[in-house]
Each structure stands twice: as C-alpha cells, then as structure tokens.
C-alpha cells in the first residue's frame, strides 16, 4: 500500500478524531461551568452531590467510563442507550466537564471579592456582574490550564477505539494487524501538527487578552 493511500485512509480516521474533539469541547466547556457553579453552591446537598460526581468521574479511568456508558444501559435495558459514537461523546463530555469545572472554580474564586462589590455598589445585577466583569478576567486567568486540558483531549480521543469507534489510531492499528507497522508511528505526525495549531491558537488568545492586567 502506497504512502498516499495510507495517508488518505489515516485522514478519514483523523476526521473522526477531530469530530470527537470538537463535539466534546462543544458540550464540556459550558457543562463544566454549570458543574463549577454547582460545586460552589450555597445549597449544601447540591454542592455535595456535585463534588461526589466530580470525585467519581476524576477517580475512574476514562476508558472504563466509556465502557460504562456504552455497555451498562445495554445490560439493564437489553439494548444500548446510544450508538458507539454517541456513547464516546457522552463519556468524554462528562469527563472533561468535570476536569474543566475545577479549573473554572479555581479561576472564579481567584477573582477578588472587591470586583463583585464594585459592581454591586453600581447597582448591577448578579448576572451582569458575572458576565460583564468577572467572566473575562476568569478566562484570562484560566487560559493556560484550559490549553493543557484541550491538548490532553486531542490525544484522549484515541480511547474511542475501545468500543470500536474508528478514529485515526484505530485505522493505523488495522494496518498493523495486516503487518503494516509504520502507519502507527505516522499517526504521531497528525497529532503533533494538530496540537501545534492549537498551541498557536492559544498563544493568539493570550496575546488578545494581554491588553489588560487582571
């Protein structure tokens, strides 16, 4: 099999990798914020519930969580709740939302109380204070740890293959079972290029937010 053919086949797998990556971010970034608010809630039962969920999700391997989401409903209901692909998205989104929630929480709690008070004495509502004053300062502060999570996600997508979602590494493994080993190592180039693009993107965002100090 020629280099071009292998590249094209790997690219179809990589498209799936990108799809998992993008959908996971799409769902986990906002969900993480909801979880962060839950973990900071003044209502103790909610706060404890959220903290227990975060503990479980962060405490169990992501691979196991994928298995649970895909197979457990099947055991109980007799058929899977979601397709293989959707199960992967669900497991990834919840997992990443929990990690992100802790980054959000740290960022939000690092903003001085006096910023809230300054908004309060100007008659702003809680929502206005959060979205117009606090949020951008939080984003600036958490950009670096978020970039870590996002880059980790790029490589975690490879776990989708454990329930036969064919992303780039699975494509390469299929070659390997037919005694074609080098495509396996070739996948590294795809990951590296993509992570390179993301690194540049985060650098750009950091420069964009460099106009103020917080």
């Amino acid at each position: 099999m020629s280099f071009i053919e292998v590249t094209l086949r790997l690219l179809t797998g990589f498209k799936q990798t990108l799809l998992i990556f993008a959908l996971t971010l799409l769902f986990s970034l906002p969900l993480g914020l909801v979880i962060a608010f839950g973990s900071m809630s003044k209502f103790a039962p909610l706060r404890i519930l959220v903290k227990v969920i975060v503990w479980i999700v962060r405490g169990v391997p992501l691979m196991l969580q994928i298995f649970v989401v895909y197979y457990v409903p099947g055991f109980i209901l007799g058929q899977p709740l979601a397709s293989r692909f959707n199960s992967v998205i669900l497991a990834f989104s919840i997992n990443y939302a929990c990690y992100l929630s802790e980054i959000y929480r740290g960022g939000i709690e690092s903003i001085s109380l006096s910023q809230y008070e300054a908004g309060q004495v100007l008659g702003m509502t809680k929502t206005q204070i959060f979205f117009k004053i606090i949020l951008l300062q939080v984003i600036k502060r958490i950009l670096a740890p978020i970039s870590n999570e996002v880059i980790t996600l790029v490589k975690d997508t490879a776990l989708a293959r454990v329930i036969m979602v064919v992303e780039i590494l699975k494509v390469a493994e299929n070659f390997a079972t037919k005694a074609l080993i080098w495509p396996l190592f070739y996948t590294g180039v795809f990951y590296l290029l993509f992570v390179g693009v993301l690194t540049l993107l985060f650098g750009y965002c950091e420069r964009k937010l460099g106009y103020f100090r917080a």
Partner: peptide, 29 residues
Amino acid sequence: RQRRLHFGLIFQSFNLFPQYTALENVTLA
C-alpha cells in the same frame, strides 16, 4: 439594588474593572 443607587462608594483600592477603559468603567453601569 435600587436602594444602593442612593449611595456611591469609592473604595480604598479603587477596584476599577481591569478589562475596560477609563471611559468604559464610567459608562458601563
């Protein structure tokens, strides 16, 4: 919130909003 508007408070440590210009700080609320 409505009651607060009868008072203005200037803090010891200014507490300006760092992401807004001087004028935006004044006009935001």
